[in-house]
Design a protein around this nucleic acid. Structure first.
Lengths: 206, 206
DNA sequence: TGAGCATGTTAATGAGCGTTAACGCCCTCT
DNA sequence: AGAGGGCGTTAACGCTCATTAACATGCTCA
């Protein structure tokens, strides 16, 4: 019935276009800093036309944040399960790699993720926070297995700190200029993250 | 003539009160998410009364961002100069310690610093960016001395990543709950930052 | 004392913006 | 063919919010 034969492969639906552009704009100028007219213009329709696809501006942000939180958690769980037969080292490495992929591929979403959470309705916010908390817990568990002496609060803070490290890429301008390029950046972030976690347990002083 | 004998020590002027509260509110809910009435209420005066102290809402943000950028750069320069007789290791360590103090003591400002830059007028934004760039350069120089093989773009990205790591604390809720407490957090961040930089140069694989 | 400035107050103004109304086109399916 | 729904459009509406106007009040200092 579908007249669009290519639909199986790509064919980004209008909804998806809107979400992608909204994510980019929200990340660039903040939720309040972007008008619906701009979002519409970014996908070639004008302002109120968006209301054929979303009940309101808030709903776009909600869908973006819930979406990325779910994908992060799902990805993390799969990786944790896949490697759980292996050592905790392997699990942590896999979590790091997965998060790096996210940070490098979905830069606007990563930015929104910790920046615009408060603009959500109570219910959505609680949902996103729950997902985020579960994702963090995944990391904390592994980190504590690897560093038995470290108190939980410290492990949790370390995990958040490494998130900050991995999520730093969006702040660097586009790939255009003097940036290391995707592959090099991936390797760099991996080394830095492993280095940070490796220093979690205090070594005997030199 | 001053009837307030304690003025020599603290006596936070009205301007300073406003700036502190504005910083807190902007960090919590974003520049656009805070109204002037709220800022006024936070210091006990009402809305338009703020205009006796600032030409407008933008001016408050501008003063905050320029202020912190200048203090960061000045502090960094002093530390770099004080330790420059010593090894680059000492300089980097001192820069890290200074930045940690900033991140832990001025949490709202650190947040604003990389979050609301785009809300500034062109001229202010360029000024802040220039200060930020110089601060980053301070770090990049030292990092490259310590890691001669590393290309500049990579060193710069690593510095940004460590900033992300160190600036992660504001995202964790207030010190109230299960947080490590200021001293422990300071030690933790220091270890993590040193660990990350230590992994900058790829080691021969294990 | 009393002019003048610092510092506030409330009321009005005006712009921006999310949202809704009212209307049109085209594709599809009976 | 023609009814109906998907998808847009432009024009209003109404609310929020920064900014300005107009009007106090109380120090300070000649």
């Amino acid at each position: 019935m579908s007249t669009n034969a290519a639909a199986r492969v790509a064919a980004p639906t209008r909804r998806e276009q809107i979400l992608r552009e909204a994510a980019r704009l929200f990340a660039e100028r903040g939720f309040h800093g972007v008008g619906v007219d701009e979002i519409g213009a970014a996908v070639g329709i004008s302002g109120p036309g968006l209301y054929r696809h979303f009940p309101g501006k808030d709903a776009m942000l909600a869908e973006l944040l819930v979406g990325i939180s779910e994908r992060l958690l799902d990805g993390g769980r799969q990786r944790a399960a896949a490697e759980s037969a292996d050592s905790p080292e392997a699990v942590l490495g896999s979590l790091i790699d997965g998060h790096i992929d996210f940070a490098l591929d979905d830069r606007p979403l990563i930015t929104l993720h910790d920046r615009e959470l408060d603009r959500l309705r109570e219910s959505d916010r609680k949902r996103v926070r729950r997902l985020q908390r579960q994702y963090v817990e995944l990391w904390v568990t592994v980190v504590r297995e690897l560093n038995p002496g470290v108190p939980e609060a410290e492990a949790r803070s370390a995990v958040h700190a490494v998130f900050g490290l991995l999520n730093s890429t969006p702040h660097l301008g586009s790939y255009g200029k003097g940036l290391p390029g995707r592959a090099a950046m991936e390797g760099l972030l991996r080394r830095l993250a492993h280095g940070a976690f490796g220093a979690l347990t205090p070594r005997a002083a030199a």
